[in-house]
Protein backbone atom coordinates (compact mmCIF):
# COMPACT_ATOMS: atom_id res chain seq x y z
CA UNK A 1 0.00 0.00 0.00
CA UNK A 2 2.69 2.36 1.18
CA UNK A 3 4.93 1.22 -1.63
CA UNK A 4 2.23 1.83 -4.17
CA UNK A 5 1.86 5.34 -2.82
CA UNK A 6 5.53 5.95 -3.28
CA UNK A 7 5.68 4.47 -6.72
CA UNK A 8 2.79 6.70 -7.58
CA UNK A 9 4.66 9.68 -6.16
CA UNK A 10 7.68 8.79 -8.25
CA UNK A 11 5.46 8.47 -11.30
CA UNK A 12 3.82 11.81 -10.55
CA UNK A 13 7.21 13.44 -10.23
CA UNK A 14 8.31 11.88 -13.48
CA UNK A 15 5.26 13.36 -15.13
CA UNK A 16 6.09 16.76 -13.66
CA UNK A 17 9.61 16.67 -15.01
CA UNK A 18 8.40 15.48 -18.39
CA UNK A 19 5.82 18.25 -18.27
CA UNK A 20 8.57 20.81 -17.86
CA UNK A 21 9.97 19.64 -21.16
CA UNK A 22 6.61 19.51 -22.88
CA UNK A 23 7.55 22.25 -25.34
CA UNK A 24 9.28 19.25 -26.96
CA UNK A 25 9.01 18.39 -29.76
CA UNK A 26 8.70 21.89 -31.19
CA UNK A 27 5.15 23.01 -31.81
CA UNK A 28 3.91 24.99 -34.76
CA UNK A 29 7.02 24.55 -36.88
CA UNK A 30 6.87 23.26 -40.42
CA UNK A 31 9.66 21.67 -42.38
CA UNK A 32 9.59 23.57 -45.66
CA UNK A 33 12.60 22.97 -47.86
CA UNK A 34 13.94 25.75 -50.08
CA UNK A 35 10.79 27.69 -49.24
CA UNK A 36 8.99 25.31 -51.57
CA UNK A 37 8.43 21.72 -50.50
CA UNK A 38 6.46 21.16 -47.29
CA UNK A 39 7.27 17.85 -45.64
CA UNK A 40 5.01 15.86 -43.34
CA UNK A 41 6.74 15.70 -39.94
CA UNK A 42 3.68 14.74 -37.84
CA UNK A 43 1.16 12.13 -38.81
CA UNK A 44 -1.32 9.71 -37.26
CA UNK A 45 0.17 6.23 -36.77
CA UNK A 46 -0.59 3.34 -39.10
CA UNK A 47 -2.89 0.65 -37.66
CA UNK A 48 0.05 -1.70 -37.10
CA UNK A 49 1.70 0.68 -34.61
CA UNK A 50 -1.32 2.59 -33.29
CA UNK A 51 -0.97 0.92 -29.89
CA UNK A 52 2.66 2.11 -29.67
CA UNK A 53 2.59 5.76 -30.71
CA UNK A 54 -0.13 8.39 -30.34
CA UNK A 55 1.49 10.45 -33.11
CA UNK A 56 4.35 9.76 -35.50
CA UNK A 57 7.00 12.48 -35.34
CA UNK A 58 10.06 13.16 -37.45
CA UNK A 59 13.40 13.46 -35.67
CA UNK A 60 13.63 16.95 -37.21
CA UNK A 61 11.09 18.23 -34.65
CA UNK A 62 13.42 17.32 -31.79
CA UNK A 63 16.47 19.17 -33.05
CA UNK A 64 17.51 22.68 -32.05
CA UNK A 65 16.64 25.66 -34.17
CA UNK A 66 20.01 25.95 -35.91
CA UNK A 67 20.03 22.28 -36.92
CA UNK A 68 16.43 22.48 -38.11
CA UNK A 69 17.26 25.52 -40.20
CA UNK A 70 20.17 23.75 -41.91
CA UNK A 71 17.81 21.14 -43.29
CA UNK A 72 15.43 23.77 -44.67
CA UNK A 73 17.78 25.07 -47.32
CA UNK A 74 19.81 22.86 -49.63
CA UNK A 75 22.57 25.47 -49.71
CA UNK A 76 22.93 25.19 -45.94
CA UNK A 77 22.40 21.44 -45.77
CA UNK A 78 25.89 19.93 -45.45
CA UNK A 79 24.58 16.59 -46.74
CA UNK A 80 24.18 18.04 -50.22
CA UNK A 81 27.92 17.84 -50.88
CA UNK A 82 27.78 14.08 -50.46
CA UNK A 83 24.59 13.94 -52.51
CA UNK A 84 26.47 15.67 -55.36
CA UNK A 85 29.16 13.00 -55.11
CA UNK A 86 26.40 10.38 -55.34
CA UNK A 87 24.95 12.02 -58.45
CA UNK A 88 28.40 11.91 -60.06
CA UNK A 89 28.87 8.26 -59.11
CA UNK A 90 25.54 7.49 -60.76
CA UNK A 91 27.04 8.48 -64.11
CA UNK A 92 30.50 6.99 -63.51
CA UNK A 93 31.47 3.85 -65.41
CA UNK A 94 32.92 1.20 -63.11
CA UNK A 95 33.68 -2.53 -63.25
CA UNK A 96 34.44 -5.07 -65.96
CA UNK A 97 31.19 -4.51 -67.92
CA UNK A 98 31.99 -0.87 -68.66
CA UNK A 99 28.69 0.36 -67.28
CA UNK A 100 27.45 3.10 -64.99
CA UNK A 101 24.18 3.05 -63.09
CA UNK A 102 22.83 5.40 -65.73
CA UNK A 103 23.63 2.90 -68.53
CA UNK A 104 20.73 0.77 -67.39
CA UNK A 105 18.59 2.99 -65.19
CA UNK A 106 18.79 6.24 -67.16
CA UNK A 107 18.35 9.38 -65.10
CA UNK A 108 18.47 8.92 -61.33
CA UNK A 109 14.92 10.28 -61.16
CA UNK A 110 13.92 6.74 -62.20
CA UNK A 111 14.56 5.89 -58.52
CA UNK A 112 11.74 8.19 -57.40
CA UNK A 113 9.62 6.56 -54.70
CA UNK A 114 12.06 3.79 -53.90
CA UNK A 115 13.40 5.15 -50.57
CA UNK A 116 9.86 5.28 -49.19
CA UNK A 117 9.31 1.56 -49.78
CA UNK A 118 12.53 0.15 -48.38
CA UNK A 119 13.47 -2.30 -47.06
CA UNK A 120 11.48 -4.74 -49.24
CA UNK A 121 11.67 -8.30 -50.51
CA UNK A 122 14.14 -8.84 -53.35
CA UNK A 123 13.03 -9.95 -56.82
CA UNK A 124 13.65 -13.62 -56.00
CA UNK A 125 11.38 -13.16 -52.98
CA UNK A 126 13.74 -15.02 -50.67
CA UNK A 127 15.38 -12.17 -48.76
CA UNK A 128 14.57 -8.74 -47.36
CA UNK A 129 16.84 -6.09 -48.86
CA UNK A 130 17.88 -2.64 -47.79
CA UNK A 131 18.84 -0.05 -50.41
CA UNK A 132 22.49 -0.99 -49.91
CA UNK A 133 21.75 -4.60 -50.93
CA UNK A 134 20.09 -3.53 -54.18
CA UNK A 135 23.00 -1.26 -55.03
CA UNK A 136 25.67 -3.86 -54.33
CA UNK A 137 23.67 -6.48 -56.22
CA UNK A 138 23.87 -4.28 -59.32
CA UNK A 139 27.53 -3.54 -58.75
CA UNK A 140 28.67 -7.11 -58.27
CA UNK A 141 26.23 -9.02 -60.52
CA UNK A 142 25.56 -6.50 -63.31
CA UNK A 143 28.57 -4.19 -63.48
CA UNK A 144 31.41 -6.53 -62.55
CA UNK A 145 32.45 -4.02 -59.88
CA UNK A 146 33.38 -4.47 -56.25
CA UNK A 147 30.73 -4.15 -53.58
CA UNK A 148 30.81 -0.90 -51.67
CA UNK A 149 31.24 -0.99 -47.90
CA UNK A 150 27.83 -0.74 -46.21
CA UNK A 151 28.57 2.57 -44.55
CA UNK A 152 31.45 3.70 -46.75
CA UNK A 153 31.41 7.17 -48.28
CA UNK A 154 30.51 5.97 -51.83
CA UNK A 155 27.58 3.97 -50.51
CA UNK A 156 26.17 6.73 -48.30
CA UNK A 157 26.66 9.25 -51.11
CA UNK A 158 24.64 6.99 -53.42
CA UNK A 159 21.90 6.21 -50.89
CA UNK A 160 21.73 9.96 -50.20
CA UNK A 161 21.34 10.80 -53.90
CA UNK A 162 18.71 8.09 -54.38
CA UNK A 163 16.82 9.18 -51.24
CA UNK A 164 16.67 12.75 -52.51
CA UNK A 165 14.57 11.48 -55.46
CA UNK A 166 11.82 10.54 -52.96
CA UNK A 167 11.83 13.79 -51.02
CA UNK A 168 8.33 14.56 -49.80
CA UNK A 169 6.92 11.11 -50.54
CA UNK A 170 5.23 9.26 -47.66
CA UNK A 171 7.05 6.33 -46.09
CA UNK A 172 5.12 3.16 -46.76
CA UNK A 173 6.73 -0.26 -46.43
CA UNK A 174 5.08 -3.59 -47.19
CA UNK A 175 4.79 -5.67 -44.02
CA UNK A 176 2.55 -8.43 -45.35
CA UNK A 177 3.25 -11.57 -47.37
CA UNK A 178 6.82 -12.80 -47.14
CA UNK A 179 7.86 -9.58 -45.33
CA UNK A 180 5.56 -10.39 -42.39
CA UNK A 181 7.98 -12.66 -40.59
CA UNK A 182 10.79 -10.14 -41.01
CA UNK A 183 8.54 -7.48 -39.52
CA UNK A 184 7.65 -9.70 -36.56
CA UNK A 185 11.31 -10.43 -35.91
CA UNK A 186 12.11 -6.71 -36.07
CA UNK A 187 9.30 -5.91 -33.68
CA UNK A 188 10.57 -8.46 -31.19
CA UNK A 189 14.04 -6.90 -31.39
CA UNK A 190 12.58 -3.43 -30.84
CA UNK A 191 11.11 -4.45 -27.49
CA UNK A 192 13.97 -6.66 -26.26
CA UNK A 193 16.05 -5.14 -23.46
CA UNK A 194 19.66 -5.79 -24.36
CA UNK A 195 23.08 -5.43 -22.81
CA UNK A 196 24.19 -4.78 -19.27
CA UNK A 197 21.99 -1.68 -19.12
CA UNK A 198 18.99 -3.79 -20.20
CA UNK A 199 17.47 -1.15 -22.45
CA UNK A 200 15.26 -1.68 -25.50
CA UNK A 201 14.71 0.68 -28.39
CA UNK A 202 11.24 1.27 -26.94
CA UNK A 203 12.60 2.35 -23.53
CA UNK A 204 14.22 5.34 -25.17
CA UNK A 205 12.29 6.01 -28.38
CA UNK A 206 8.73 5.04 -27.37
CA UNK A 207 8.50 5.68 -23.63
CA UNK A 208 10.80 8.69 -23.44
CA UNK A 209 10.78 10.67 -26.65
CA UNK A 210 10.77 14.36 -25.78
CA UNK A 211 12.83 13.68 -22.64
CA UNK A 212 16.56 14.14 -22.22
CA UNK A 213 19.03 11.38 -21.54
CA UNK A 214 22.02 13.38 -20.38
CA UNK A 215 22.59 15.95 -23.17
CA UNK A 216 20.61 14.03 -25.77
CA UNK A 217 17.07 15.00 -26.64
CA UNK A 218 15.29 11.75 -27.45
CA UNK A 219 13.23 11.49 -30.63
CA UNK A 220 11.14 8.55 -31.80
CA UNK A 221 14.16 7.16 -33.65
CA UNK A 222 12.45 7.45 -37.05
CA UNK A 223 14.10 6.74 -40.41
CA UNK A 224 12.58 9.51 -42.52
CA UNK A 225 15.80 11.54 -42.67
CA UNK A 226 18.17 8.72 -43.64
CA UNK A 227 20.90 8.58 -44.60
CA UNK A 228 21.29 11.55 -42.23
CA UNK A 229 24.15 14.00 -42.08
CA UNK A 230 25.46 13.88 -38.54
CA UNK A 231 27.21 17.06 -37.48
CA UNK A 232 29.10 15.07 -34.85
CA UNK A 233 30.62 12.79 -37.51
CA UNK A 234 30.67 15.44 -40.24
CA UNK A 235 29.35 12.90 -42.74
CA UNK A 236 26.35 10.92 -43.90
CA UNK A 237 25.44 8.05 -41.60
CA UNK A 238 23.56 4.92 -42.69
CA UNK A 239 20.54 3.49 -40.89
CA UNK A 240 22.44 0.41 -39.73
CA UNK A 241 25.33 2.51 -38.48
CA UNK A 242 22.89 4.41 -36.29
CA UNK A 243 21.34 1.15 -35.03
CA UNK A 244 24.80 -0.10 -34.18
CA UNK A 245 25.55 2.95 -32.04
CA UNK A 246 22.25 2.69 -30.20
CA UNK A 247 22.68 -1.02 -29.41
CA UNK A 248 26.28 -0.43 -28.30
CA UNK A 249 25.08 2.25 -25.89
CA UNK A 250 23.08 -0.37 -23.99
CA UNK A 251 26.42 -2.07 -23.29
CA UNK A 252 25.40 -4.89 -25.61
CA UNK A 253 27.04 -6.83 -28.40
CA UNK A 254 25.80 -5.16 -31.58
CA UNK A 255 24.84 -6.79 -34.87
CA UNK A 256 26.77 -6.20 -38.07
CA UNK A 257 25.65 -3.57 -40.58
CA UNK A 258 23.75 -5.39 -43.31
CA UNK A 259 22.96 -8.37 -41.05
CA UNK A 260 19.54 -10.03 -41.37
CA UNK A 261 18.78 -8.81 -37.84
CA UNK A 262 19.35 -5.16 -38.69
CA UNK A 263 17.39 -5.49 -41.93
CA UNK A 264 14.46 -6.95 -39.97
CA UNK A 265 14.76 -4.12 -37.44
CA UNK A 266 14.92 -1.59 -40.28
CA UNK A 267 11.63 -2.89 -41.68
CA UNK A 268 9.89 -2.67 -38.33
CA UNK A 269 11.24 0.80 -37.53
CA UNK A 270 10.31 1.99 -41.05
CA UNK A 271 6.74 0.77 -40.46
CA UNK A 272 6.57 2.90 -37.30
CA UNK A 273 7.21 5.93 -39.49
CA UNK A 274 4.50 5.23 -42.06
CA UNK A 275 3.21 8.47 -43.52
CA UNK A 276 6.20 10.66 -42.65
CA UNK A 277 7.75 12.39 -45.64
CA UNK A 278 11.12 11.16 -46.83
CA UNK A 279 13.34 14.12 -46.00
CA UNK A 280 16.05 13.44 -48.55
CA UNK A 281 18.22 14.06 -46.56
CA UNK A 282 18.16 14.98 -42.88
CA UNK A 283 20.59 16.86 -40.65
CA UNK A 284 21.10 15.65 -37.08
CA UNK A 285 23.50 16.54 -34.26
Amino acid sequence: MLRQGRTFLAAALAVCVAGAASADPVEGEELVINGDITLVTRVAPAASVADALPEVLSGWLFRDEATRAMEMDDFDNPAMLAVDVGLELWDTVDGSEGKSCASCHGDISSMKGLRAKLPKMNAAGDDLWSMENFINDCRTNRMGADAWKWSGSEMTAMTGAISLQSRGMPMSVAIDGPAAEWWAKGKEMYYTRTGQLELSCANCHEDNYGNHIRADHLSQGQLSGFPVYRLKNAKLVSIHNRFKGCVRDTRAETYAEGSPEFRALELYVASRGEGLSIEGVGVRP
Binding site: R3, T7, A10, T192, R193, T194, G195, Q196, L197, E198, L199, N203, D207, N208, K244, V247, R248, D249, T250, R251, A252, E253, T254
Partner: peptide, 28 residues
Protein backbone atom coordinates in the same frame (compact mmCIF):
# COMPACT_ATOMS: atom_id res chain seq x y z
CA UNK B 1 11.15 -1.76 -6.16
CA UNK B 2 9.80 -0.59 -9.53
CA UNK B 3 8.68 -3.51 -11.65
CA UNK B 4 10.12 -3.37 -15.17
CA UNK B 5 11.95 -0.12 -14.39
CA UNK B 6 14.11 1.42 -17.06
CA UNK B 7 16.70 2.12 -14.37
CA UNK B 8 19.72 -0.17 -14.85
CA UNK B 9 20.52 -2.78 -12.19
CA UNK B 10 23.87 -1.75 -10.82
CA UNK B 11 24.66 -4.65 -8.48
CA UNK B 12 23.83 -7.58 -10.70
CA UNK B 13 25.89 -9.96 -12.83
CA UNK B 14 23.29 -11.15 -15.31
CA UNK B 15 21.90 -12.96 -17.12
CA UNK B 16 21.84 -10.35 -19.88
CA UNK B 17 20.72 -10.58 -23.50
CA UNK B 18 23.72 -10.08 -25.82
CA UNK B 19 25.96 -8.83 -23.05
CA UNK B 20 28.72 -6.57 -24.33
CA UNK B 21 32.16 -5.60 -23.18
CA UNK B 22 31.36 -2.13 -21.80
CA UNK B 23 30.62 0.37 -24.56
CA UNK B 24 32.76 -1.36 -27.21
CA UNK B 25 29.87 -3.05 -29.01
CA UNK B 26 31.77 -6.35 -28.77
CA UNK B 27 30.45 -9.39 -26.95
CA UNK B 28 31.70 -10.46 -23.54
Amino acid sequence: TFEGSMMPSFYKTGPYIRQGDGYTGKGF
